[in-house]
């Protein structure tokens, strides 16, 4: 699998560290709702088809990327810096 890092260019997957589901949203820090936190910490979906994931380019620029990937074919449809998306951008 090759991930096209927006900073470093296309790189082999061995340079990256998987950092989990990028579709989850961290609950409000002050929230004490155990169900909401439990879902955030433990529940993961495993969709057949498109999925958004965080990948850290640990062997490169050390930026977290949001990778949209088809779980059945491993085809990657988009890659963006996590920071850009989290601050209002779209994947």
């Amino acid at each position: 699998m090759i991930i096209k890092c927006p900073y470093c260019g296309p790189r082999d997957v061995i340079e990256f560290t998987y950092q989990g589901d990028a579709t989850r949203k961290r609950p409000e820090p002050l929230s004490n709702d155990p169900d909401v936190w439990n879902a955030y910490v433990y529940d993961r979906s495993n969709p057949s088809g498109l999925h958004r994931e965080f990948w850290l380019h640990s062997g490169g620029c050390r930026q977290h990327l949001v990778v949209t990937r088809d779980m059945t074919t491993h085809a990657i449809s988009s890659v963006a810096f996590a920071r850009d998306i989290a601050s209002g951008g779209q994947a």
């Binding site: 560290t17 950092q19 990028a22 961290r26 965080f54 850290l56 640990s58 050390r62 930026q63 977290h64 810096f81 996590a82 920071r83 989290a86 601050s87």
Partner: peptide
């Protein structure tokens, strides 16, 4: 290091 980077990039980019 990875833990801090994750939170800065993915959770608290502000």
């Amino acid at each position: 290091m990875q833990h801090l980077e994750y939170y800065l990039d993915c959770i608290w980019p502000e």
